[in-house]
Simulated assay, not measured.
Amino acid sequence: MTDTTPPAASEVLTDVHQGVGRIRLNRPKALNALTTPMVAAIDDALAAWESAPLTAVVLSSTSAKAFCAGGDMRAIRRNVLAGDAEASERFFATEYRLNARIAEHPVPIVALIDGICMGGGLGLSVHGGYRVVTENTVLAMPETALGFFPDIGAGYFLPRLPGALGMYLGLTGHRLDAADALYTGLATHFIPADRLHLVPDALAGHPHTPIDTVLKDLGDGSEVPHSKLAAVRPDLDRAFGAPTLADIRAELHRTETPWAADTLATLDSVSPRSLDITHALLTAGRDRTLRACLTADLHLARTTILEPDFLEGVRAVLVDKDHSPAWQPT
């Protein structure tokens, strides 16, 4: 075993074992919420392995509850309130560089998504080639509820999901289980949680077998429940395929189903400014490369974290947890 432990040793554990690089997130009390040193440590490890003779890189968590809850938005808010927005900008710049490295890495990356995976957690996983989910998986891009926007390259990957699924997920922050994650394409494989620990050794033991085959074999024919999103897909595509936010709302009003009513209530509860930004970002992202989307994310992040809605959204959801934000008019 070759130890390549990066600077954030206690929160990001890395090693190479029998030709498989392993990165484990180890900040369980914070649900692996990402800090700048954590992101830099992951990036350093992947950079060091770009020319290494590895079969795969496996990205996982030591937490039983979460793969990664996203970026540490409370810390970002504290930086802004302390007058140190540059510290938060460094976080986003480092994170987006890592997102691009994952997408372009020459060694296949396998993310083991057990438990919560939100925001920056999708940035660690969705840009890689293999995203394994379990019966415990919960995926979401919940940024509009925080007065922020779906970043980490979501402007690239959300518009490329089937139909209008990406616009729906980006605007509402809807939470997906394993079945929905597989249905949308955000996940590629299902393996029961009690078999997930077998993945690194299985990959190491079968270096000449396609990774897809190894993962499917570990899934052991497990049946995944039907996707709930599939049941509302026609209404979803019609509403969220509309060209403007006003048109989306109008279609939802015309639909007159419990799903449509719940979705309207969700849109009414999140930041109006974030909805505007997200709709524009995802619309423009259809014609952008991933790197262009990440550049746009950085420009937007610089200004959005200074806005009252961001400070208020993070306060309401993550700090005071009263879930009663006072949004600014759009």
Rank of each mutant, 00 (worst) to 15 (best):
R101W: 00
R101D: 00
E104P: 00
E104G: 00
E104A: 14
H105M: 04
P106C: 00
V107K: 05
P108W: 09
I109N: 03
V110R: 14
V110H: 15
A111I: 10
A111H: 11
A111E: 12
I113K: 12
I113Y: 08
I113S: 05
D114P: 04
D114N: 15
C117H: 07
M118D: 14
M118T: 12
M118C: 13
M118G: 12
G120H: 10
G121I: 05
G121S: 06
G121Q: 08
L122M: 11
L122A: 03
G123H: 14
G123A: 09
S125M: 01
V126C: 11
V126N: 09
V126P: 12
V126E: 09
H127E: 07
G128H: 11
G128Y: 11
G129A: 15
G129D: 15
Y130Q: 10
Y130R: 10
R131C: 11
R131D: 12
V132G: 03
V133Q: 04
E135H: 10
E135A: 04
T137A: 07
L139G: 05
L139N: 07
A140K: 06
P142E: 01
E143N: 14
T144C: 15
A145I: 00
G147L: 02
F148M: 14
F148Y: 15
F148E: 08
F148W: 14
F148G: 08
F148R: 10
F149V: 03
F149D: 02
F149R: 01
I152W: 10
G153A: 07
G153K: 08
A154D: 00
Y156V: 02
F157K: 05
F157I: 03
L158C: 00
L158Y: 02
P159H: 07
P159I: 04
R160L: 04
R160C: 04
L161R: 12
L161M: 11
L161Q: 12
P162G: 05
G163E: 02
G163L: 02
A164K: 06
L165A: 09
G166S: 08
M167W: 08
L169W: 06
L169F: 06
T172N: 06
T172H: 05
G173P: 12
G173R: 13
G173C: 10
H174D: 11
H174Y: 11
H174A: 13
